[in-house]
Nucleic acid binder design. Sequence first.
DNA 1: CATTGATTTGGAAACGTTTCAACATAAATC
DNA 2: GATTTATGTTGAAACGTTTCCAAATCAATG
Lengths: 322, 322
Amino acid sequence: MASIKDVANLAGVAVGTVSRVINNAGAVKPATRDKVKAAIEQLNYVPDEVARNFKMQKSKMVALMLPSIWNPFFSELAYYIEDELDRSGFKLMLCNSGGKPEKELYYFDMLKQNKVAGIVGITYNDIESSVSAGIPMISIDRHFSKQITCVTSDNFEGGRIALRKLVQAGSKKPAFLGNVPSMYSETLRRKDGFVHEAQALGIPYAVYEEPDAIKNEDEYYSNFLRRHPDIDGVFAITDMTAARYIETAKEAGIRVPEDVKVIGYDGIQDHPYFHPVLSTIRQPVEEMARTAVKLLLGKVEGEALEQEVFCIPVTYRAGETT
Amino acid sequence: MASIKDVANLAGVAVGTVSRVINNAGAVKPATRDKVKAAIEQLNYVPDEVARNFKMQKSKMVALMLPSIWNPFFSELAYYIEDELDRSGFKLMLCNSGGKPEKELYYFDMLKQNKVAGIVGITYNDIESSVSAGIPMISIDRHFSKQITCVTSDNFEGGRIALRKLVQAGSKKPAFLGNVPSMYSETLRRKDGFVHEAQALGIPYAVYEEPDAIKNEDEYYSNFLRRHPDIDGVFAITDMTAARYIETAKEAGIRVPEDVKVIGYDGIQDHPYFHPVLSTIRQPVEEMARTAVKLLLGKVEGEALEQEVFCIPVTYRAGETT
DNA sequence: CATTGATTTGGAAACGTTTCAACATAAATC
DNA sequence: GATTTATGTTGAAACGTTTCCAAATCAATG
């Protein structure tokens, strides 16, 4: 592979000059520029990014750390994050943490060693270590500290909308269903919004959470059915939770939406070819992704961010379950 | 950030010695090793991977190039690929090509500049350029040339199984449905297997493809219904195709599986919470992913591969559509 | 104790860039 | 035409490693 030196030799100039041509920084006479360009052409030269990263002590690599790319919500997010990064000439490194704190830390160390420019994270750990390592970070749906900007959908408003839509659809006693994945998670606020709106409207409601350690996931749903037989509306914390609830309910002879109205959260069903098509609070995944990237790249450039949490509005999407 | 020089100074040894300790290569006296280790500890030193990559002229980064991570089949694949890479200390860079040849080429250039160790690709281009650039590559589901090893599921056998299962389920005249994404695609063989088995068993069958340029995707399915009203079994080239066919058929008053049996290919429905649960030929995604990575890393180490195409067996998974 | 051979360590070169002070040339001013 | 100013260019240092040859130390042998 031809190096900048070869180009300089062939063009009969110094390496510094070639460098200036490549980066078109600094002044260089048109005649010289042409000579250099010709040499580059002839040698089929491309600058070595690794050497450049090394010299510059920084790379154009951004890491995306999430529990699992397999999750459709995350894979959509990753799609847009990659797209937005690419537009700015950045690359994406994918890290599946499995949601395991120790693996998250292991990846943080690795990322530090690899001098990534920044991190977009959906992590369970409080990730002070990243901050202390001086790596800019944006967190999605988790709100840790002032230093780590958080991008999230308007969970509170989503919860309010869900409650209202359930009531509108005829529910007399709706329930919130779902465990929050992390104490830092902004998704908690879905519940808050739901509860807030129910109280504001004077509607009786229930909240069903359970200690995080349930061995048998199926139990969770059947327990809910058993303990809350009078519920006629469900706002599930995610679409997957909604889908699983519906499946369990169906087996118990409960019809959706006739007996119970159901609303999920996320909007992972981009194709309405599978049923039931969930009524859901749709997260603006694309906008969240692009916002997160723009904020991160701003941080990379050293911009100070004025806000600690960026909330993107959500919309209600009617399906077959209300 | 402390560098190897700082460590050497603090430990009172030469940088070379520190290097040997870090990589535990070469001989170093236990006493010296301890001194160095202590210094590393004290300074909180971690080797700079970027500098290392630079010096070594190679990195531990592997690129995964695919049309879109959003596609659930690819996101599952990516999940296992990342996991397998991580086990060998490699990192994954994600490149969504959108299936656009020009974007694929753009990424190839970028990867070359970034001296990635290898590429796992699901590409539409013939990617000789990667090979000529000397980057080891494994292709999934596409078979280009001898130099690019291909990992794929046993598409031919999958087609045969599908035909047999349709017949078993009572279909008298089954059809193959679906367009092949690329002339290099091994997925063609799903059709071949289907046809082969139908002929072997003397079963009448139909094959429905259409010139790739269909503006309106929906038309594709309604055209099929119109042109082949006598079909009572469908083997769709992917699960998504199957789902869309079923949706269109339903609107036309055709019941699945009563009137038409349907089998898809992929097995993307890992959660049976949405219906219909497709009967499908399940691709062994995990095995394909791990195989691809192992083969690739072998190539990276310079191993010569004996085979040109690696075929992983598929299994039939019964659902609600047969 | 001198010699040999094996083991351990030092130190410098090299990887391909960018950057910056210094120098060279050309253009503008008086 | 001499002086200043602006414009181009050079060449070397630096980034943090690895690697390799030479030098130094050590252990064993005669």
